[in-house]
Amino acid sequence: MLDPKNPARRWHDMGGDTAGPIPDMDAPGEDHDFSLWEKRVDALMIIGSAKGYFTVDGLRRVLEDMGEDAFEKMTYYERWIASINQNLIEGGAYTTADLAEKMAEVSARGKTYGDASAGS
């Protein structure tokens, strides 16, 4: 949310805010492993930056520009793939048209992640 006292303050710069209790530090499953698709997103970040298409700063810049609504409503790795994708397009790895065509092809493969990522 826009800080009325300082419109220059950006939503992600949250140090010092009051906020509720630290969530779920002892919850069962807090120590969960991530799912395969999330681990793949993480790997794509490392690979995309290692190959020089973008930097962690570019990843953060897009995450910040996606805004607070995305922070509240999307999961961590949902936000990451959105930012990785935008950085890869900006970095010239592929075009928006390439992506549109590929996403249509992928979603036509099946109803579940397992079906749609089979063979890849």
Binding site: N6, A8, R10, G15, G16, D57, R60, R61
Partner: peptide, 12 residues
């Protein structure tokens, strides 16, 4: 300073 854009200096 209060520039817009990506910076790594926390406002606090």
């Amino acid at each position: 300073m209060m520039p817009p854009g990506h910076v790594r200096t926390p406002i606090y």
